[in-house]
């Protein structure tokens, strides 16, 4: 069976080292927070200027001055800190952030990331902090479905969409397999409801090796 979004979030959470400083991108990556162990010591960074972000705010907790990068109201945890935007992005570029997790349109065999623009002529370009996160975090994890609605793979030899960052992705978590991306290429870490042969055939790209070969 392929994985649900919740199961993918659980697997990503399992791979985050205890005590890591982590940025969760907008959308699906925010679900990872639900699966972090309370005693993991993981500290969440939100690029609008906070470390120690807590769960979403509800009811009386909602404060328009306290939001996440998706502009949703959130809470603060003990030990939280606030800082301005230049500091927040200095944390990324300066290599202080351990992991960031983002969605993607495409990831290449060399870890190039494309997740900000489809390049469509009528699209309004908007990048936010994606390019800064891509090159700044020590490790970039991508969460996405492996195949687009038309069946084409999103893990590709070379990205056809405009890049967000070059050679920056270290892991790709998908509904049917997890991949590690390194200097030597793409390796299958784990599969879910698909054979390695079928995966290899459908991806149309070389894979370094797999746990089964």
């Amino acid at each position: 069976m392929s994985l649900s979004r919740e199961q993918m979030a659980e697997i990503v959470a399992r791979d985050i080292p205890d005590g890591a400083y982590v940025n969760l991108g907008i959308g699906q990556p925010t679900m990872v927070a639900d699966y972090l162990r309370p005693d993991s010591g993981v500290v969440l960074h939100t690029e609008n200027g906070m470390l120690g972000m807590g769960r979403p705010a509800t009811g009386d907790e909602i404060d328009p001055d306290l939001t996440n990068a998706g502009k949703q109201p959130v809470t603060e945890l003990p030990g939280a800190s606030y800082f301005h935007h230049a500091d927040s992005f200095a944390m990324m570029r300066g290599g202080h952030l351990d992991v960031c997790i983002m969605g993607a349109f495409q990831v290449s065999a060399t870890g190039d990331l494309a997740n900000w623009s489809t390049g469509a002529p009528d699209a309004i370009p908007a990048v936010g902090g994606a390019m800064d996160l891509a090159i700044g975090a020590k490790q970039v994890f991508v969460m996405m479905s492996l195949f687009a609605k038309d069946g084409s793979p999103k893990l590709v030899p070379e990205c056809t969409y405009p890049l967000t960052g070059r050679a920056c992705v270290s892991r790709v978590y998908t509904d049917v397999a997890t991949f590690a991306v390194g200097a030597d290429g793409v390796r299958i870490v784990e599969t879910f409801g698909i054979s390695v042969d079928e995966l290899t055939t459908r991806l149309c790209m070389p894979l370094v090796s797999s746990p089964f070969t």
Partner: peptide, 14 residues
């Protein structure tokens, strides 16, 4: 429209 990555936007003003 000029789109600037968020961190570059902040740092350019800094």
């Amino acid at each position: 429209l000029e789109v600037v990555p968020q961190g570059n936007l902040a740092e350019r003003m800094r």
